[in-house]
Design a protein around this nucleic acid. Sequence first.
RNA 1: GGCCACGUGGCGGAAUGGUUACGCAGAGGACUGCAAAUCCUUGUAUACCGGUUCGAUUCCGGUCGUGGCCUCCA
Length: 454
Amino acid sequence: MSLNLYDTFSNSKKKFEPIDPKNIRMYVCGPTVYDYPHVGNARPVIVFDILFRILQNLYGREHVTYVRNITDVDDKIINASQENNEDINELTSRTINYFHADAKYIGAIEPSFEPRATDHIAEMINIIETLIEKNYAYIAENNVLFSSNKFSKYGSLSGKNLEEMIAGSRVDVESYKREASDFILWKPSKDNEPGWDSPWGKGRPGWHIECSAMSEKLLGKTFDIHGGGQDLIFPHHENEIAQSECANGEKFANYWVHNGFVTVEGSKMAKSDGNFVTVNELKEKYQGEVIRLTMILTHYRQPLNWTNDNLQESKKTLDKWYQYFSEVDFKPDLSVMIDENVMNALNDDMNTPQAIAELHKLFKNCKSNDQDSLNRFLISSQFLGLMNDDPSQWLSWGKDDTSVDQSKIESLIAQRNTARANKDFAEADRIRDELENLGIALEDKGAETTWKTK
RNA sequence: GGCCACGUGGCGGAAUGGUUACGCAGAGGACUGCAAAUCCUUGUAUACCGGUUCGAUUCCGGUCGUGGCCUCCA
Protein backbone atom coordinates (compact mmCIF):
# COMPACT_ATOMS: atom_id res chain seq x y z
CA MET A 1 0.00 0.00 0.00
CA SER A 2 1.69 3.18 -1.12
CA LEU A 3 0.81 6.85 -1.16
CA ASN A 4 0.05 8.63 -4.40
CA LEU A 5 0.01 12.41 -4.54
CA TYR A 6 -0.91 14.88 -7.25
CA ASP A 7 2.17 16.95 -7.95
CA THR A 8 1.59 20.44 -9.34
CA PHE A 9 5.04 20.54 -10.90
CA SER A 10 4.44 17.58 -13.19
CA ASN A 11 0.66 18.04 -13.29
CA SER A 12 0.12 14.39 -12.55
CA LYS A 13 -0.50 11.94 -9.80
CA LYS A 14 2.76 10.39 -8.67
CA LYS A 15 3.76 7.64 -6.32
CA PHE A 16 5.32 9.22 -3.26
CA GLU A 17 8.93 8.13 -2.91
CA PRO A 18 10.67 9.74 0.03
CA ILE A 19 14.24 10.97 0.02
CA ASP A 20 14.75 9.15 3.30
CA PRO A 21 11.99 6.95 4.75
CA LYS A 22 13.41 7.61 8.21
CA ASN A 23 13.10 11.36 7.73
CA ILE A 24 10.10 12.56 5.75
CA ARG A 25 10.08 16.35 5.40
CA MET A 26 7.11 18.56 4.57
CA TYR A 27 6.89 22.35 4.46
CA VAL A 28 3.55 24.15 4.27
CA CYS A 29 3.00 27.88 3.94
CA GLY A 30 1.17 28.99 7.06
CA PRO A 31 -0.78 32.10 7.91
CA THR A 32 0.07 35.75 7.65
CA VAL A 33 -1.02 36.91 11.06
CA TYR A 34 -3.06 40.09 11.02
CA ASP A 35 -6.67 38.97 11.54
CA TYR A 36 -8.93 36.07 12.51
CA PRO A 37 -8.41 33.01 10.30
CA HIS A 38 -11.25 32.42 7.85
CA VAL A 39 -12.41 29.15 6.31
CA GLY A 40 -10.05 29.72 3.40
CA ASN A 41 -7.14 29.75 5.84
CA ALA A 42 -8.54 26.74 7.63
CA ARG A 43 -8.64 24.55 4.54
CA PRO A 44 -4.86 24.01 4.15
CA VAL A 45 -4.59 23.59 7.91
CA ILE A 46 -6.94 20.60 7.70
CA VAL A 47 -5.72 19.27 4.34
CA PHE A 48 -2.09 19.12 5.39
CA ASP A 49 -3.03 17.85 8.83
CA ILE A 50 -4.58 14.88 7.04
CA LEU A 51 -1.44 14.45 4.93
CA PHE A 52 0.71 14.67 8.07
CA ARG A 53 -1.38 11.91 9.64
CA ILE A 54 -1.10 9.73 6.54
CA LEU A 55 2.67 10.16 6.42
CA GLN A 56 2.96 9.39 10.12
CA ASN A 57 0.89 6.28 9.63
CA LEU A 58 3.04 5.09 6.73
CA TYR A 59 6.50 5.94 8.02
CA GLY A 60 6.08 6.16 11.76
CA ARG A 61 5.31 9.13 13.91
CA GLU A 62 8.92 9.94 14.76
CA HIS A 63 10.03 9.84 11.13
CA VAL A 64 7.96 12.75 9.81
CA THR A 65 8.84 16.43 10.17
CA TYR A 66 6.11 18.93 9.35
CA VAL A 67 7.01 22.61 9.22
CA ARG A 68 4.29 25.26 8.98
CA ASN A 69 5.62 28.77 9.10
CA ILE A 70 4.11 31.96 10.45
CA THR A 71 4.53 35.11 8.40
CA ASP A 72 4.78 37.88 10.94
CA VAL A 73 6.33 40.59 8.80
CA ASP A 74 4.36 41.79 5.81
CA ASP A 75 2.71 44.89 4.41
CA LYS A 76 -0.76 43.68 5.35
CA ILE A 77 0.38 43.40 8.95
CA ILE A 78 1.83 46.89 8.85
CA ASN A 79 -1.40 48.24 7.40
CA ALA A 80 -3.57 46.44 9.93
CA SER A 81 -1.47 47.68 12.83
CA GLN A 82 -1.81 51.25 11.60
CA GLU A 83 -5.54 50.88 11.10
CA ASN A 84 -6.00 49.35 14.55
CA ASN A 85 -3.53 51.75 16.08
CA GLU A 86 -1.95 48.68 17.62
CA ASP A 87 1.68 47.75 18.10
CA ILE A 88 2.83 45.23 15.49
CA ASN A 89 4.06 42.70 18.04
CA GLU A 90 0.79 42.89 19.93
CA LEU A 91 -1.15 42.41 16.71
CA THR A 92 0.87 39.41 15.58
CA SER A 93 0.95 37.65 18.94
CA ARG A 94 -2.77 38.25 19.38
CA THR A 95 -3.60 36.81 15.95
CA ILE A 96 -1.16 33.91 16.36
CA ASN A 97 -3.17 32.99 19.44
CA TYR A 98 -6.37 33.10 17.40
CA PHE A 99 -4.79 30.90 14.79
CA HIS A 100 -3.60 28.33 17.33
CA ALA A 101 -6.96 28.24 19.07
CA ASP A 102 -8.80 27.73 15.78
CA ALA A 103 -6.37 25.09 14.50
CA LYS A 104 -6.88 23.16 17.71
CA TYR A 105 -10.63 23.60 17.54
CA ILE A 106 -10.79 21.99 14.10
CA GLY A 107 -8.70 19.07 15.31
CA ALA A 108 -5.36 19.78 13.65
CA ILE A 109 -2.41 18.22 15.39
CA GLU A 110 0.52 20.54 15.94
CA PRO A 111 3.24 20.66 13.31
CA SER A 112 6.75 19.66 14.33
CA PHE A 113 7.98 23.23 13.91
CA GLU A 114 6.26 26.56 13.52
CA PRO A 115 9.03 29.02 12.67
CA ARG A 116 8.40 32.76 12.54
CA ALA A 117 9.81 34.91 9.78
CA THR A 118 11.11 37.57 12.14
CA ASP A 119 13.27 34.97 13.90
CA HIS A 120 15.06 34.18 10.64
CA ILE A 121 16.13 37.54 9.25
CA ALA A 122 19.83 36.58 9.45
CA GLU A 123 19.23 33.40 7.43
CA MET A 124 17.36 35.39 4.82
CA ILE A 125 20.16 37.93 4.55
CA ASN A 126 22.60 35.06 4.04
CA ILE A 127 20.69 33.69 1.09
CA ILE A 128 20.32 37.14 -0.45
CA GLU A 129 24.07 37.71 -0.16
CA THR A 130 24.72 34.40 -1.87
CA LEU A 131 22.33 35.31 -4.68
CA ILE A 132 24.10 38.65 -5.18
CA GLU A 133 27.51 36.92 -5.16
CA LYS A 134 26.34 34.43 -7.75
CA ASN A 135 24.96 37.28 -9.81
CA TYR A 136 21.33 36.14 -9.56
CA ALA A 137 20.31 39.29 -7.75
CA TYR A 138 20.97 43.01 -8.18
CA ILE A 139 20.52 46.18 -6.21
CA ALA A 140 18.35 49.02 -7.47
CA GLU A 141 17.23 52.06 -5.50
CA ASN A 142 17.99 50.32 -2.19
CA ASN A 143 15.96 47.26 -3.15
CA VAL A 144 17.52 43.90 -3.78
CA LEU A 145 15.82 42.12 -6.67
CA PHE A 146 16.00 38.62 -8.05
CA SER A 147 16.78 38.59 -11.74
CA SER A 148 14.18 36.21 -13.06
CA ASN A 149 15.66 35.67 -16.50
CA LYS A 150 18.86 34.29 -14.96
CA PHE A 151 16.97 31.18 -13.89
CA SER A 152 16.12 29.20 -16.98
CA LYS A 153 13.46 27.12 -15.20
CA TYR A 154 11.58 30.22 -14.05
CA GLY A 155 7.86 29.64 -14.61
CA SER A 156 7.99 25.87 -14.79
CA LEU A 157 5.90 25.25 -11.67
CA SER A 158 3.04 27.49 -12.78
CA GLY A 159 3.40 26.72 -16.48
CA LYS A 160 4.11 30.29 -17.43
CA ASN A 161 6.81 31.85 -19.52
CA LEU A 162 8.27 35.29 -19.13
CA GLU A 163 6.98 36.72 -22.40
CA GLU A 164 3.41 35.78 -21.51
CA MET A 165 3.70 37.33 -18.13
CA ILE A 166 4.98 40.59 -19.54
CA ALA A 167 2.32 40.61 -22.26
CA GLY A 168 -0.44 39.92 -19.78
CA SER A 169 0.73 42.13 -16.99
CA ARG A 170 -2.11 44.17 -15.55
CA VAL A 171 0.03 46.21 -13.26
CA ASP A 172 2.56 48.94 -13.82
CA VAL A 173 6.10 47.71 -13.47
CA GLU A 174 8.30 49.49 -10.99
CA SER A 175 10.88 51.47 -12.92
CA TYR A 176 13.81 50.01 -11.03
CA LYS A 177 13.06 46.46 -12.15
CA ARG A 178 15.12 45.19 -15.06
CA GLU A 179 12.40 42.72 -15.99
CA ALA A 180 8.74 42.89 -15.05
CA SER A 181 8.98 39.44 -13.50
CA ASP A 182 11.88 40.31 -11.21
CA PHE A 183 10.84 40.20 -7.59
CA ILE A 184 11.98 41.79 -4.37
CA LEU A 185 14.29 40.00 -1.97
CA TRP A 186 14.85 42.96 0.34
CA LYS A 187 13.30 46.39 0.50
CA PRO A 188 14.00 49.52 2.50
CA SER A 189 11.76 50.34 5.47
CA LYS A 190 10.52 53.74 6.42
CA ASP A 191 11.07 54.95 9.97
CA ASN A 192 7.58 53.93 11.07
CA GLU A 193 7.89 50.46 9.55
CA PRO A 194 9.62 47.45 11.04
CA GLY A 195 13.17 47.13 9.81
CA TRP A 196 16.42 45.27 10.35
CA ASP A 197 19.99 46.29 9.62
CA SER A 198 21.42 44.69 6.51
CA PRO A 199 24.26 45.20 4.03
CA TRP A 200 21.68 47.19 2.00
CA GLY A 201 20.57 49.44 4.81
CA LYS A 202 17.67 49.23 7.23
CA GLY A 203 14.90 47.26 5.62
CA ARG A 204 12.78 44.16 5.58
CA PRO A 205 12.57 40.99 3.55
CA GLY A 206 10.42 40.46 0.49
CA TRP A 207 7.57 38.04 0.85
CA HIS A 208 9.09 34.89 -0.63
CA ILE A 209 12.54 34.70 0.92
CA GLU A 210 11.33 33.64 4.37
CA CYS A 211 10.16 30.24 3.17
CA SER A 212 13.44 29.56 1.41
CA ALA A 213 15.33 30.42 4.58
CA MET A 214 13.16 28.54 7.07
CA SER A 215 12.70 25.40 4.98
CA GLU A 216 16.44 25.13 4.42
CA LYS A 217 17.19 25.64 8.09
CA LEU A 218 14.69 23.06 9.34
CA LEU A 219 14.44 20.58 6.46
CA GLY A 220 17.60 21.01 4.40
CA LYS A 221 18.22 22.26 0.88
CA THR A 222 16.07 19.52 -0.64
CA PHE A 223 12.97 18.13 1.01
CA ASP A 224 9.99 15.95 0.10
CA ILE A 225 6.76 17.91 0.03
CA HIS A 226 5.96 21.60 -0.24
CA GLY A 227 2.33 22.57 0.23
CA GLY A 228 -0.05 25.48 0.33
CA GLY A 229 -3.08 27.02 -1.34
CA GLN A 230 -3.41 27.08 -5.11
CA ASP A 231 -3.04 30.83 -5.17
CA LEU A 232 0.52 30.48 -3.93
CA ILE A 233 1.69 28.58 -7.01
CA PHE A 234 2.42 31.88 -8.66
CA PRO A 235 4.29 33.91 -7.74
CA HIS A 236 5.14 32.71 -4.25
CA HIS A 237 6.23 29.14 -4.85
CA GLU A 238 7.68 29.90 -8.25
CA ASN A 239 9.89 32.50 -6.60
CA GLU A 240 10.87 30.22 -3.74
CA ILE A 241 12.11 27.66 -6.25
CA ALA A 242 14.09 30.30 -8.13
CA GLN A 243 15.74 31.68 -4.99
CA SER A 244 16.55 28.40 -3.35
CA GLU A 245 17.73 26.52 -6.40
CA CYS A 246 19.92 29.40 -7.57
CA ALA A 247 21.42 29.91 -4.12
CA ASN A 248 21.97 26.21 -3.44
CA GLY A 249 22.42 24.67 -6.85
CA GLU A 250 20.18 21.83 -5.68
CA LYS A 251 16.60 20.81 -6.24
CA PHE A 252 14.21 22.50 -3.80
CA ALA A 253 11.17 20.26 -3.23
CA ASN A 254 10.22 16.94 -4.82
CA TYR A 255 6.43 17.15 -4.61
CA TRP A 256 4.21 20.24 -4.78
CA VAL A 257 0.78 19.81 -3.23
CA HIS A 258 -1.84 22.58 -3.51
CA ASN A 259 -5.35 22.77 -2.14
CA GLY A 260 -8.21 24.39 -4.04
CA PHE A 261 -10.06 27.55 -3.18
CA VAL A 262 -13.08 28.17 -1.00
CA THR A 263 -16.15 30.09 -2.08
CA VAL A 264 -18.87 31.20 0.34
CA GLU A 265 -22.49 30.49 -0.58
CA GLY A 266 -21.50 30.24 -4.21
CA SER A 267 -19.51 33.39 -4.67
CA LYS A 268 -15.89 34.30 -4.32
CA MET A 269 -14.73 34.80 -0.80
CA ALA A 270 -13.59 38.39 -0.62
CA LYS A 271 -12.81 40.30 2.51
CA SER A 272 -13.51 43.58 0.80
CA ASP A 273 -17.10 42.45 0.08
CA GLY A 274 -17.59 41.08 3.56
CA ASN A 275 -18.15 37.70 1.94
CA PHE A 276 -16.09 35.55 4.26
CA VAL A 277 -16.57 33.34 7.29
CA THR A 278 -14.13 33.12 10.17
CA VAL A 279 -13.57 29.97 12.14
CA ASN A 280 -14.10 32.04 15.23
CA GLU A 281 -17.70 32.87 14.35
CA LEU A 282 -18.42 29.25 13.39
CA LYS A 283 -17.38 28.16 16.88
CA GLU A 284 -20.57 29.66 18.27
CA LYS A 285 -22.77 27.35 16.24
CA TYR A 286 -20.74 24.28 15.41
CA GLN A 287 -18.42 21.83 17.06
CA GLY A 288 -14.92 21.65 15.57
CA GLU A 289 -15.57 18.25 14.05
CA VAL A 290 -18.55 19.63 12.11
CA ILE A 291 -16.25 22.21 10.52
CA ARG A 292 -13.65 19.54 9.88
CA LEU A 293 -16.07 17.07 8.29
CA THR A 294 -17.54 19.81 6.10
CA MET A 295 -14.03 20.62 4.94
CA ILE A 296 -12.96 17.08 4.08
CA LEU A 297 -16.27 16.15 2.45
CA THR A 298 -14.81 17.72 -0.69
CA HIS A 299 -11.58 16.48 -2.25
CA TYR A 300 -8.77 18.90 -1.41
CA ARG A 301 -8.01 19.88 -5.01
CA GLN A 302 -11.64 20.64 -5.87
CA PRO A 303 -13.16 24.05 -5.28
CA LEU A 304 -15.06 24.02 -1.99
CA ASN A 305 -18.31 25.92 -1.66
CA TRP A 306 -18.79 26.79 2.00
CA THR A 307 -22.51 26.82 2.82
CA ASN A 308 -24.73 26.60 5.82
CA ASP A 309 -26.53 23.63 4.27
CA ASN A 310 -23.30 21.66 4.10
CA LEU A 311 -22.50 22.46 7.71
CA GLN A 312 -25.95 21.27 8.75
CA GLU A 313 -25.50 18.07 6.80
CA SER A 314 -22.17 17.37 8.50
CA LYS A 315 -23.68 18.10 11.87
CA LYS A 316 -26.50 15.71 11.15
CA THR A 317 -24.07 12.97 10.18
CA LEU A 318 -21.97 13.39 13.33
CA ASP A 319 -25.06 13.65 15.52
CA LYS A 320 -26.25 10.34 14.12
CA TRP A 321 -22.91 8.66 14.75
CA TYR A 322 -22.54 10.03 18.27
CA GLN A 323 -26.14 9.19 19.07
CA TYR A 324 -25.44 5.57 18.22
CA PHE A 325 -22.32 5.41 20.37
CA SER A 326 -24.12 7.05 23.24
CA GLU A 327 -26.53 4.11 23.23
CA VAL A 328 -24.09 1.21 22.96
CA ASP A 329 -21.72 0.19 25.67
CA PHE A 330 -18.54 -0.05 23.68
CA LYS A 331 -14.87 0.39 24.44
CA PRO A 332 -12.72 0.52 21.33
CA ASP A 333 -9.83 -1.89 21.00
CA LEU A 334 -6.97 0.48 20.24
CA SER A 335 -4.90 -2.24 18.66
CA VAL A 336 -7.31 -2.46 15.72
CA MET A 337 -5.91 -1.14 12.47
CA ILE A 338 -7.43 1.61 10.37
CA ASP A 339 -9.91 0.12 7.92
CA GLU A 340 -8.20 -0.92 4.71
CA ASN A 341 -10.75 0.73 2.44
CA VAL A 342 -10.47 4.00 4.33
CA MET A 343 -6.69 3.89 4.16
CA ASN A 344 -6.66 3.00 0.47
CA ALA A 345 -8.86 5.99 -0.26
CA LEU A 346 -6.58 8.30 1.70
CA ASN A 347 -3.47 6.92 0.07
CA ASP A 348 -4.97 7.72 -3.30
CA ASP A 349 -4.17 11.43 -3.28
CA MET A 350 -6.05 12.02 -0.03
CA ASN A 351 -9.48 11.03 -1.29
CA THR A 352 -11.29 12.05 1.88
CA PRO A 353 -14.82 11.94 0.34
CA GLN A 354 -14.21 8.31 -0.57
CA ALA A 355 -12.84 7.64 2.92
CA ILE A 356 -15.99 9.11 4.45
CA ALA A 357 -18.16 6.98 2.16
CA GLU A 358 -16.30 3.98 3.58
CA LEU A 359 -17.04 5.24 7.09
CA HIS A 360 -20.74 5.33 6.21
CA LYS A 361 -20.54 1.72 5.03
CA LEU A 362 -18.74 0.67 8.20
CA PHE A 363 -21.30 2.48 10.29
CA LYS A 364 -24.06 0.55 8.59
CA ASN A 365 -22.34 -2.67 9.61
CA CYS A 366 -22.05 -1.38 13.17
CA LYS A 367 -25.80 -1.59 13.45
CA SER A 368 -25.68 -5.35 13.70
CA ASN A 369 -23.43 -4.81 16.68
CA ASP A 370 -20.53 -6.26 14.78
CA GLN A 371 -17.59 -5.62 17.13
CA ASP A 372 -15.04 -5.59 14.35
CA SER A 373 -16.95 -2.93 12.41
CA LEU A 374 -17.46 -0.88 15.56
CA ASN A 375 -13.74 -0.89 16.17
CA ARG A 376 -12.76 -0.14 12.63
CA PHE A 377 -15.35 2.62 12.33
CA LEU A 378 -14.12 4.38 15.46
CA ILE A 379 -10.41 3.92 14.86
CA SER A 380 -10.73 5.06 11.25
CA SER A 381 -12.90 8.05 12.15
CA GLN A 382 -10.47 9.11 14.82
CA PHE A 383 -7.60 8.83 12.39
CA LEU A 384 -9.40 11.41 10.27
CA GLY A 385 -9.88 13.59 13.34
CA LEU A 386 -13.54 12.70 13.91
CA MET A 387 -15.42 10.93 16.72
CA ASN A 388 -12.93 12.05 19.34
CA ASP A 389 -15.50 13.56 21.69
CA ASP A 390 -17.39 11.85 24.43
CA PRO A 391 -20.83 11.00 22.95
CA SER A 392 -22.86 12.44 25.80
CA GLN A 393 -20.82 15.63 25.78
CA TRP A 394 -21.25 15.90 22.04
CA LEU A 395 -25.01 15.49 22.26
CA SER A 396 -25.39 18.05 25.01
CA TRP A 397 -23.23 20.57 23.18
CA GLY A 398 -24.92 23.92 22.90
CA LYS A 399 -27.78 23.00 25.19
CA ASP A 400 -26.43 25.35 27.82
CA ASP A 401 -26.80 28.19 25.36
CA THR A 402 -30.47 27.56 24.74
CA SER A 403 -32.43 30.71 25.29
CA VAL A 404 -35.04 28.54 26.99
CA ASP A 405 -34.72 27.61 30.60
CA GLN A 406 -33.92 23.91 30.87
CA SER A 407 -36.14 23.40 33.89
CA LYS A 408 -39.00 24.92 31.92
CA ILE A 409 -38.37 22.40 29.15
CA GLU A 410 -38.33 19.53 31.62
CA SER A 411 -41.50 20.77 33.23
CA LEU A 412 -43.33 21.06 29.89
CA ILE A 413 -42.19 17.55 28.98
CA ALA A 414 -43.57 16.26 32.27
CA GLN A 415 -46.89 18.01 31.64
CA ARG A 416 -47.04 16.55 28.17
CA ASN A 417 -46.36 13.04 29.43
CA THR A 418 -49.11 13.43 32.01
CA ALA A 419 -51.47 14.48 29.26
CA ARG A 420 -50.37 11.50 27.16
CA ALA A 421 -50.98 9.16 30.07
CA ASN A 422 -54.47 10.59 30.32
CA LYS A 423 -54.89 10.21 26.57
CA ASP A 424 -55.37 13.95 26.28
CA PHE A 425 -53.48 14.00 23.00
CA ALA A 426 -54.68 17.44 21.99
CA GLU A 427 -52.99 18.93 25.03
CA ALA A 428 -49.90 16.76 24.51
CA ASP A 429 -49.55 17.95 20.94
CA ARG A 430 -50.11 21.55 21.97
CA ILE A 431 -47.21 21.33 24.39
CA ARG A 432 -45.03 19.68 21.76
CA ASP A 433 -45.85 22.52 19.34
CA GLU A 434 -45.05 25.06 22.01
CA LEU A 435 -41.61 23.53 22.50
CA GLU A 436 -41.18 23.26 18.77
CA ASN A 437 -41.68 27.00 18.50
CA LEU A 438 -38.99 27.47 21.12
CA GLY A 439 -36.61 25.48 18.92
CA ILE A 440 -36.84 22.30 20.95
CA ALA A 441 -37.49 18.94 19.29
CA LEU A 442 -38.80 16.01 21.31
CA GLU A 443 -38.07 12.34 20.93
CA ASP A 444 -40.16 9.71 22.71
CA LYS A 445 -38.10 6.65 23.44
CA GLY A 446 -40.23 4.10 25.18
CA ALA A 447 -41.17 5.55 28.52
CA GLU A 448 -38.58 8.28 28.26
CA THR A 449 -38.75 11.58 26.41
CA THR A 450 -35.55 13.36 25.40
CA TRP A 451 -35.11 16.72 23.74
CA LYS A 452 -32.63 18.49 21.61
CA THR A 453 -32.19 21.87 20.02
CA LYS A 454 -33.06 22.10 16.37
C1' G B 1 -5.16 39.56 -23.81
C1' G B 2 -2.24 35.06 -21.81
C1' C B 3 -2.17 30.62 -18.61
C1' C B 4 -4.85 26.94 -15.65
C1' A B 5 -8.82 24.22 -13.44
C1' C B 6 -13.71 22.66 -13.44
C1' G B 7 -18.98 21.50 -15.48
C1' U B 8 -22.03 14.24 -12.55
C1' G B 9 -29.17 12.90 -10.18
C1' G B 10 -33.43 17.92 -6.23
C1' C B 11 -28.71 19.15 -3.25
C1' G B 12 -23.60 17.87 -1.61
C1' G B 13 -19.97 14.77 -3.73
C1' A B 14 -16.52 10.34 -5.40
C1' A B 15 -15.27 6.96 -9.19
C1' U B 16 -14.93 4.72 -13.93
C1' G B 17 -13.73 2.86 -21.32
C1' G B 18 -18.92 -1.77 -20.60
C1' U B 19 -21.44 -3.59 -13.90
C1' U B 20 -24.55 -0.19 -6.72
C1' A B 21 -20.59 5.22 -5.13
C1' C B 22 -21.69 7.44 -0.52
C1' G B 23 -24.54 11.14 2.24
C1' C B 24 -28.76 14.58 2.54
C1' A B 25 -33.51 15.58 0.80
C1' G B 26 -37.98 12.96 -1.67
C1' A B 27 -41.31 8.49 -2.02
C1' G B 28 -43.28 3.77 0.17
C1' G B 29 -43.28 0.56 4.52
C1' A B 30 -42.27 -0.82 9.91
C1' C B 31 -42.57 1.50 14.67
C1' U B 32 -45.76 5.51 17.21
C1' G B 33 -52.04 7.80 20.08
C1' C B 34 -50.00 11.06 16.14
C1' A B 35 -45.17 12.61 15.35
C1' A B 36 -39.91 12.71 15.93
C1' A B 37 -35.78 9.48 16.11
C1' U B 38 -34.55 4.71 14.24
C1' C B 39 -34.85 0.56 10.78
C1' C B 40 -36.24 -1.60 5.77
C1' U B 41 -37.27 -0.63 0.51
C1' U B 42 -36.93 2.82 -3.44
C1' G B 43 -36.89 6.65 -8.11
C1' U B 44 -33.75 10.29 -10.40
C1' A B 45 -27.36 12.05 -13.39
C1' U B 46 -22.69 12.44 -16.09
C1' A B 47 -23.32 20.92 -20.00
C1' C B 48 -23.51 20.84 -25.64
C1' C B 49 -21.54 19.13 -30.55
C1' G B 50 -18.32 16.09 -33.17
C1' G B 51 -14.28 12.17 -33.29
C1' U B 52 -11.71 7.44 -31.71
C1' U B 53 -14.01 2.61 -30.06
C1' C B 54 -17.78 -3.27 -30.45
C1' G B 55 -19.00 0.21 -26.51
C1' A B 56 -17.55 6.81 -23.50
C1' U B 57 -19.83 10.01 -18.30
C1' U B 58 -14.63 8.32 -18.60
C1' C B 59 -9.88 9.32 -24.21
C1' C B 60 -9.33 13.38 -28.26
C1' G B 61 -11.11 18.08 -30.66
C1' G B 62 -14.49 22.11 -30.65
C1' U B 63 -18.62 25.15 -28.39
C1' C B 64 -20.86 27.22 -24.19
C1' G B 65 -20.65 28.15 -18.98
C1' U B 66 -18.25 28.77 -14.07
C1' G B 67 -14.04 29.71 -11.17
C1' G B 68 -8.82 30.75 -10.37
C1' C B 69 -3.98 32.91 -11.62
C1' C B 70 -1.15 36.83 -14.36
C1' U B 71 -1.14 42.45 -8.35
C1' C B 72 -1.60 41.17 -1.92
C1' C B 73 -4.24 36.59 -0.99
C1' A B 74 -4.98 29.91 1.77
